[in-house]
Computed example of a mutant assay.
Amino acid sequence: MTKSALFVGLITLDLIYLAQSPPNNNQKLVATDYTVAAGGPATNASVTFSYLGNKSQILGVLGSHHITQLITTDLANYQVTIIDLDANKQTSPPVSSIIVTESTGERAVISINAVKTQANINSLPPHILENVDLVLIDGHQMVISKIIAQQAKIKNIPIVIDGGSWKPGFEEILPYVDYAICSANFYPPNCKKEEDVFNYLQALKIPHIAITQGEKPIQYLSSEKRGFINVPKIKPLDTLGAGDIFHGAFCHYILQTNFTAALELAGKIASKTCKYFGTRSWMQCEIRF
């Protein structure tokens, strides 16, 4: 049976270049490859969730600037429905410029996030959670996300957060969360190491917590059980979007299996995608999981 998820957060346009290295001051580089795609943590997760055979909706601010057509076309190709919280906005959506280093797969990113495109709570459509099986929040639309989290909790719809980095306002959303999937860069106030992060999230009574660490094992805490999950060893070409793809895959698998199995399966997908350039080419090159 097809599952449906609502992804709440950032919608960007990503300009992605593959090069020998990021440029130095006053240096011009010629990229060896490039691609353009819709981006943002929740957006990339929604594409992955849809690719894995589900129904995806992305809730965020897009607007009507002419370059939004590049975003809408990309998301239409992956059957992701856009719910635009400010369809009349005339200014450009956030644009990210990303340079991926060929030899290591590491990326350098410069972007504008959603700070200048915060949605008004009055723009939230009614019945937004109708027929939704899961919600993912990436923290880029905090006011809207809090309302969604409160409504989802009442309806017993599981809530996942993509904790890529700490953002003010997360403290108001975390008490509603079922699955906190964080990166090694996620540090709540007064947290300086991973043990502090686990303690902080556990104090909020979040039942399932995980911290991803790139190619290192995933740490998790679930029902008082601590452990590690290894991720496959690969030679990366591009690590851009791996965390977003991990979250989208996790949302897919957590609706089918238990927490640790969902983490392991999501880790396998995210690792494989690092063998391909950009955030979409793995979908054309890999057999369906």
Rank of each mutant, 00 (worst) to 15 (best):
I11W: 10
A203D: 12
L237N: 00
D138Q: 08
K3P: 01
I71P: 14
G214F: 06
T273S: 14
A270N: 03
E130C: 04
Q202C: 04
S145M: 07
M1D: 10
T81G: 03
M142E: 03
D162W: 08
G278Y: 06
I209K: 02
G227R: 09
E286L: 14
I148K: 05
G267T: 03
G164Y: 06
A249T: 05
I128E: 05
Q27H: 06
P125G: 12
G278W: 04
Y17E: 05
K268H: 13
P94T: 02
N120P: 02
K3T: 11
G243K: 02
V30F: 09
I112Q: 12
L265I: 00
F49T: 05
S165E: 08
M1I: 10
Q141D: 07
I82V: 15
P168I: 10
Q202S: 13
A119E: 06
L59F: 10
G241Q: 06
Q90H: 13
L265R: 13
P207S: 10
E130Q: 14
D162S: 11
V143N: 13
T279V: 15
I254D: 05
Q219M: 07
P41W: 00
E130M: 04
E264S: 14
N113D: 15
L204S: 11
S92T: 11
K167V: 04
S271L: 05
I269K: 08
L75S: 11
Q151G: 02
I82Q: 12
S97Q: 12
Y220M: 04
G278R: 04
I161L: 04
G227K: 09
I234C: 00
V160I: 15
T212F: 00
T73E: 15
D138G: 04
T35Q: 05
L240W: 01
K272E: 15
D14W: 07
Q219N: 12
A249Q: 05
I112M: 11
K116F: 14
L10Q: 12
G39W: 07
A249W: 03
D84R: 10
P158L: 11
Q284V: 01
I16M: 09
A261R: 09
K192C: 02
L255A: 13
Q256W: 05
D138T: 01
Q141L: 09
S281F: 04
A37I: 02
L52F: 11
F246P: 00
K216Q: 13
Y176E: 01
F186V: 04
C191S: 14
I234S: 00
I148E: 01
I206A: 05
